[in-house]
Design a protein around this nucleic acid. Sequence first.
DNA 1: TTCAATTTAATTGAGTTCAATTTATTTTAA
DNA 2: TTAAAATAAATTGAACTCAATTAAATTGAA
Lengths: 147, 147
Amino acid sequence: MENAEKYNALKLENQICFPLYAASREIIKKYRPFLDEIGLTYTQYIAMMVLWEEKSINVKTLGEKLFLDSGTLSPVLKSLEDKGFVSKLRDKNDERSVTVNLTEKGERLKERAAEIPSKIVKCVSLPPDDALHLYTLLYKLLATVKE
Amino acid sequence: MENAEKYNALKLENQICFPLYAASREIIKKYRPFLDEIGLTYTQYIAMMVLWEEKSINVKTLGEKLFLDSGTLSPVLKSLEDKGFVSKLRDKNDERSVTVNLTEKGERLKERAAEIPSKIVKCVSLPPDDALHLYTLLYKLLATVKE
DNA sequence: TTCAATTTAATTGAGTTCAATTTATTTTAA
DNA sequence: TTAAAATAAATTGAACTCAATTAAATTGAA
């Protein structure tokens, strides 16, 4: 290998992970003003997304869906509980497991959150074809990474 | 709009940001064992990537390249300085500005880091066509987000 | 049956991330 | 010229992220 090329793979511009990491953070930043209005952080918001669909889910399964472990989820769920959006209960059949439940107040929050996705689309306007392709590639990537 | 469709945009599976965020974290996790060997975190690693190319750069420009502000960079650069990989100096022409310089030790670290990209490719094996397409879309996305 | 291995959440600690503030310096406009 | 505005970096504080550990409960093998 030519000496001039020896370190090419180490250049920031030749990384696939870096633009992934940067784009992820830049988009999450765009959510902030909208999430501030409903009193959620981005991590709390994606946890609520699952709760809005499932109504009830245990911590382990929620963690698998979000790719987050209990070290991250515990304080996130505590915060959502403190705000009254979810309640937590030990599973009677298996006392190791904790089930998270959507509350009435959490259900009502869904109405206000429903405005957010369309607002984000305005900030982050990839053409629909590109967005779909990106979506497909990201899930393909996630599938290869998850061992 | 049908009631059944009213909240579709709020479903986790219909988000573009979520797989971005999840994939970013999952890949960075793959770096860890390799970065542990050379004593860097991922954030420190991408900062070093810029330094390996530029040798010398001020904090503001580094921040622009990495999409990170001084709130994040200050402790990262302090840690790199403590480990002897970079040195910092106030700019004589503009005392507000700080220039970060690659040290001899930092230069030597590049040899060991050069092994990492190929190891990551083995953990994250998207077909080359897909990887290139993903790369293109991510930079396109970054361009639309950065206002 | 019983005790070792496994599983589930929570906790801990180091490091990151970001908004907001502070400090020091430089630039600009009156 | 000088006072206000702008800029650069550091600091602060809240929250996230993750590896490692801990505690409690369950499972499984001898």
